[in-house]
Design a binder for these strands. Structure first.
Lengths: 211, 211
DNA sequence: CGGCATCCTCTTTGATACTG
DNA sequence: CAGTATCAAAGAGGATGCCG
């Protein structure tokens, strides 16, 4: 990207992060952790291979990403975030928060990946750290299941199922995302097919579920 | 901008905000408040006139900006942020925070506007709300002077001078930005020409000035 | 002057195909 | 698996012109 050539921290940040796809690549590395090239390509439906290659190289020279070349017999490259790359998480999180209402605009042919769901949810939960800790949320969508664990240490997510979740949410990704993002009330989400099992009181601390 | 077509709040946010110049236009409207076209053009050195026009139209249809058409004899247009537009402030603020260390990369021919300085500074101060309130900071740079007022209600900035500032910082914008952004210690900033008058203890609550 | 629209050139992107 | 190569289309940048 051509530099804006402005002595302003916002412009300088966008000189590095403002290229198309760049912040989505960071999203993937923040969610998935160290990734192979194909893992990234898979989490970024629509990206052209040459662009992914270009962006990774730019991110490397900007110091946000480093590549670990695993020697044979593994013979693969792993792309990692540096500390500076992880420091950009608040930017991605702010975008996730602001973008939540736009989920409603989704068209049926939008691509979706199951790991995007717990990420967006955790962004919201992270900024509404409640009193009643710890809590385990189980999500089920047609794409797969994931778990959000909220402890005093923070919010973590993973794919799969939990043994004894405090609450289970089942429904379409759109509805779960908008509900956990505060964009739908429990009543509205229920009307749109969200099924909730367990103790709804767990959600109270997050200012969710208000009628 | 072409949509990413991903059912993810980050991608949806970037569908709206990700175009070149868009977030810098928001920066200007957040800092300056309602602006005329030429005010914006002035705060965005380097933008082509047709792009500014295009972006403003996009932001209007996206619901982030509305235009107030003052009838003759004033016959000018004022561009305002909507509530939704102001809601994007955390995105700009996160970029400002992350971009602060990059101020060090500035080249001598980078454009600069005096109102960028107190903005970046206030972003940092806002997230380190200390105990010793209220406080008034006076900034002096070769480009002009500005005031940052910190009260229990928040952090506000304005151009000009204050009657009785608690502390006065004078120096090059780069140095003031990096110091108030936590990227330089007081000692380092002093070595780079920062002059400080008043009670340095005012800064303690912001975790600044540590040797 | 304020707020664009037009024209032109140059760069970036997107889609597809191919390679070590 | 991790990229290059190629090429058409879209977008950005710069100059200038227009109209109340």
């Amino acid at each position: 990207m051509k530099s804006y050539r402005q002595l302003c921290s916002v412009a300088k940040a966008l000189d590095v992060l403002g290229d198309r796809w760049t912040l989505l690549i960071l999203r993937e590395l923040l969610i998935q952790g160290p990734c192979r090239y194909t893992d990234l390509a898979n989490g970024l439906p629509g990206i052209a291979s040459n662009l992914l290659s270009d962006r990774l190289r730019s991110l490397e020279t900007s110091g946000l990403v480093w590549r670990e070349a695993a020697p044979p017999p593994v013979a693969t490259t792993l792309f990692h975030l540096t500390e500076r790359g992880r420091a950009a998480e608040p930017v991605v999180a702010a975008l996730a928060r602001w973008g939540t209402p736009l989920i409603a605009d989704a068209t049926p042919d939008d691509a979706i990946r199951s790991h995007w769901v717990p990420f967006s949810a955790s962004v919201f939960l992270r900024e509404h750290d409640p009193g009643g800790l710890p809590a385990t949320l189980q999500l089920h969508t047609p794409l797969g299941s994931s778990v959000i664990e909220i402890t005093a240490d923070g919010v973590t997510t993973r794919a799969g199922t939990a043994d004894e979740p405090d609450i289970t949410l089942e429904g379409m990704p759109q509805v779960i995302l908008r509900f956990l993002g505060g964009d739908l009330t429990l009543t509205e989400a229920h009307e749109q097919g969200l099924a909730l099992r367990g103790d709804p009181a767990v959600l109270d601390g997050f200012h969710l579920g208000a009628a």
